[in-house]
Simulated scan of single mutants.
Amino acid sequence: MRSFLQIIKDELSLILEDKSILLTCLLAPIFYAFFVGSIYKDKDVSDIPVAMVDLDHSSLSKKIGELVDSNQKIKVMGSYSNMEEALFLFNGLQVQGILIIPREFEKKTMNLEGSTVELILNNTKFLTSNDINKGVQQVMLTVAGGVRLNYLISSRIPTEMALEQAQPIMPVIKSVFNATNNYGDYLLPILLVLIIQQTLIIGFGQSVLHELVHYKTLSDSKINFFGFMKIMLAKSSYYVVLYASLFFLFYKVIFPYYHLDFKGSEFLHFSMSLAFILSVMVYTIFLSTFFKTAIGWTEIMAFSTYPLFLVSGYSWPIEAMPKVLQIFANLLPSTPYFTMFNKLSMQGASLINIKSEMAQLLFLLLFGYLSLYLRFRYIYKKRVIQVKSQ
């Protein structure tokens, strides 16, 4: 069996010769960090251009235009009498939305009959479209509340009681951990971590499969589990150092570039990141034993990025998922790590605040190692039976 040093030398040769592994593990994380991050670079935008089509030409419709324009995130570029002019600007990307006030809007609104206001949005940039949608909704809710208030006062209801009836529930929004209250600051950090995770899974998995196929490691009757793990340990040494360095690079360079703050302990962050890297690598070795080619591995793992993110509990609460998905989600190292990362980066959490997620991550590391051992024993017994049958 090859020595530990020889395996390390072989792995270095493989990384330098195999352009797929080299590109996936070294260049892809940096490229995608800037490529994907560029979508969210201008996370907090202002003066988003919007056109207004006023078919009512009433004092109320003009007031709505003024209120929408007063929103710091929206800039009304002009009021038009027909859709053709507004659509020309919209299709030319000169405006990102069109607000349409229908005919008889003021009349129906003041008579409490109700009237539909239409909003056309350019959803290619969902951050800006969300800001437009939110700003217009706030204006319409304010106008609706004012109309109800005037109606109640005109009905000789006392002003204080009219205020309570016009808006019985007053929303109070206080941003605690996401101070800018936008998707970019919340989503971008975890997308950067997801890039690191997926490139590690794909690149390291290709290396493991090269070992299993080229050297036929699992078919070697002289290799026991601890010999197999020695080979995997030697192969993984480069990836541990590389991805620990990538986490450091992302934290020190990429995060500041996108104006993302990291409030938690650096030591705690890097310690948990190292445990996360080891957990992902153990699971990668385990899963790669079910594949026969690096191409098949790459194809499957590349399409797993979005599903793994969705079930991690970051974008949707795990408790709201079906029971089967809850079990699956809690077996993923990314589930506790994403939660820890969010608590550390945004909330400035300390050790006591993440102890349950830390225990879960360490348990999953142990569980992955045990699963890999059982998988090796199964393959070993299957190999023995095949040898005896021959």
Results as ranks from 00 to 15, higher is better:
48 I>Y: 10
56 D>Y: 06
42 D>K: 10
48 I>V: 14
52 M>G: 04
84 E>Y: 12
54 D>W: 03
57 H>K: 14
59 S>P: 01
44 D>L: 06
86 A>T: 08
50 V>M: 08
62 K>W: 07
62 K>D: 15
78 G>R: 01
58 S>E: 05
51 A>H: 02
72 Q>N: 12
86 A>E: 11
67 L>I: 03
71 N>V: 11
53 V>D: 04
40 Y>L: 09
42 D>F: 05
42 D>W: 03
73 K>M: 12
71 N>H: 13
60 L>E: 06
74 I>H: 07
78 G>F: 09
41 K>I: 11
45 V>E: 02
60 L>T: 09
84 E>N: 14
64 I>R: 00
61 S>N: 02
73 K>F: 12
73 K>Q: 12
38 S>P: 00
82 N>K: 14
63 K>Y: 10
59 S>W: 06
55 L>S: 09
47 D>R: 06
43 K>A: 10
49 P>Y: 08
63 K>Q: 10
64 I>Y: 01
38 S>F: 13
76 V>I: 15
40 Y>Q: 05
85 E>Q: 15
40 Y>S: 01
79 S>P: 00
72 Q>P: 13
42 D>N: 13
86 A>W: 10
39 I>A: 10
43 K>L: 09
85 E>M: 06
84 E>W: 11
72 Q>E: 12
75 K>R: 15
67 L>M: 13
57 H>M: 04
41 K>L: 11
42 D>L: 04
75 K>G: 10
40 Y>F: 15
85 E>V: 12
70 S>F: 02
81 S>E: 14
85 E>S: 15
61 S>A: 13
79 S>Q: 10
59 S>A: 12
42 D>A: 03
65 G>R: 03
53 V>R: 03
67 L>D: 04
49 P>Q: 08
77 M>N: 07
40 Y>D: 05
66 E>Y: 04
50 V>N: 09
44 D>V: 15
44 D>K: 12
53 V>L: 05
46 S>F: 10
71 N>L: 12
86 A>H: 08
38 S>K: 08
58 S>D: 05
65 G>L: 03
61 S>T: 14
83 M>L: 14
53 V>Q: 06
86 A>G: 11
43 K>Q: 07
63 K>D: 05
61 S>E: 07
68 V>R: 04
70 S>K: 15
41 K>V: 04
76 V>M: 13
58 S>P: 01
68 V>E: 05
65 G>M: 02
61 S>G: 06
63 K>C: 01
84 E>C: 03
85 E>N: 11
62 K>S: 14
38 S>H: 10
64 I>W: 00
57 H>F: 07
47 D>F: 01
64 I>V: 11
58 S>F: 08
39 I>M: 13
71 N>C: 14
71 N>R: 13
76 V>L: 09
74 I>L: 11
69 D>L: 07
64 I>L: 01
38 S>D: 10
54 D>E: 11
78 G>W: 02
45 V>Q: 09
76 V>N: 02
61 S>I: 05
54 D>M: 06
68 V>S: 03
60 L>G: 04
39 I>S: 04
72 Q>C: 00
80 Y>R: 06
49 P>S: 04
79 S>Y: 08
74 I>E: 01
77 M>E: 15
53 V>E: 05
51 A>Q: 02
38 S>G: 08
71 N>S: 14
81 S>N: 13
54 D>R: 05
40 Y>R: 03
49 P>K: 05
